[in-house]
Computed example of a mutant assay.
Amino acid sequence: MKYTVSLEIAQPRERVAQLLADPEQMPKWLRGLVLHEPLNGEHGQVGTESRVVLKMGQQEFEATETITRREPADLHGIPSESVVHFEREIVGKGMWSAARERLTEAGPGTTLWESENEYRFSGLLMRLVGLVMPGTFRKQSLQHMQDFKAFAEHGQDVREETA
């Protein structure tokens, strides 16, 4: 299953890239994040593997995330014509996914965030989930992006909504 979602954020691209790459900020916008810890390497750097635990409802999902691309490596002083790329693979029980994030300047002080996602499922139960609920994955990706937008533009913290 593949899909792409996108939205505009009223912040400069360099600021958006820095917020997305900052592990201290993740719990503020990544709804359901329980844990995100590097197993090796430095957070956000190519080749780094991290243990990720997300809670969705009463269910916890654990996976390993591997950063496969980050360009440019230095997120300060990005030329205006450049596209920022963040790519990662996530492997969990019965599931493999890849996310390819692109940040481009949409105008003065505005960033277009495009997120291309691909999922593959193994095992009968996970294949059934992928077939029966494909819209759920797209909706969740868009929710994460909207939460990030609210955080980046207005400082809204998803943890305050659930407290």
Rank of each mutant, 00 (worst) to 15 (best):
D22M: 08
L75Y: 04
L128D: 11
G32L: 02
I9R: 05
N117V: 06
L131A: 15
Q58E: 14
S122G: 13
I78W: 02
M26I: 09
A21Y: 04
L33I: 06
I90H: 04
E114H: 04
G109E: 06
P27Y: 04
L103V: 08
G44R: 03
S80W: 08
P27C: 03
T66Y: 01
T66C: 08
A63P: 00
M26Q: 10
E49R: 14
H76W: 11
V53P: 00
A63I: 02
G57I: 15
L33Q: 03
E116T: 12
Q59C: 08
G41F: 02
F61R: 08
V16Y: 01
Q25R: 12
L112D: 02
E89Y: 01
L124M: 12
W96P: 00
R70K: 14
Y3M: 02
M26E: 08
T111N: 03
Q45K: 13
L39V: 06
L75N: 05
V5M: 03
R31L: 07
D22N: 15
E60W: 10
R31V: 00
V53S: 06
E89T: 10
M1R: 03
Q58H: 12
V83T: 15
L75I: 05
H76L: 13
S122A: 10
R70M: 09
A106S: 13
T66W: 05
E87M: 09
L103Q: 07
I67E: 01
L7D: 14
E8W: 12
T162E: 15
M1V: 03
M133Y: 15
S6M: 11
H144I: 12
Y3V: 00
G41A: 04
R138S: 00
Q146T: 11
R127N: 12
E116H: 12
P79D: 06
Q156F: 08
A99G: 11
K2L: 03
E49T: 11
L125Y: 12
Q18F: 05
F137N: 03
F86C: 02
Q146I: 08
A98Y: 04
E62P: 06
L54C: 06
A63L: 10
R138A: 09
G44Q: 00
I9F: 06
S6L: 10
E37K: 14
E60G: 08
E24I: 10
D157N: 14
Q59F: 13
Q156M: 09
E118I: 01
L128R: 14
V5G: 05
E101G: 00
G155N: 09
P79A: 10
A163V: 11
A17D: 05
E153K: 09
E118G: 01
P12W: 09
V16R: 00
T68G: 01
E42I: 13
E14N: 10
R15L: 13
M95V: 15
L131V: 14
A152G: 04
F137Y: 11
R102F: 00
E8A: 11
L30K: 02
A106H: 04
V5L: 06
R102Y: 02
E114A: 12
K2H: 06
E24L: 15
R100M: 07
K139A: 15
E14L: 07
Q140E: 15
R15E: 13
F61T: 09
G41D: 02
P134G: 05
T162G: 12
E8C: 11
F151N: 04
L125K: 12
N40I: 00
V46Y: 06
V53I: 15
D22V: 08
F148R: 00
G57P: 06
A73K: 10
V84K: 04
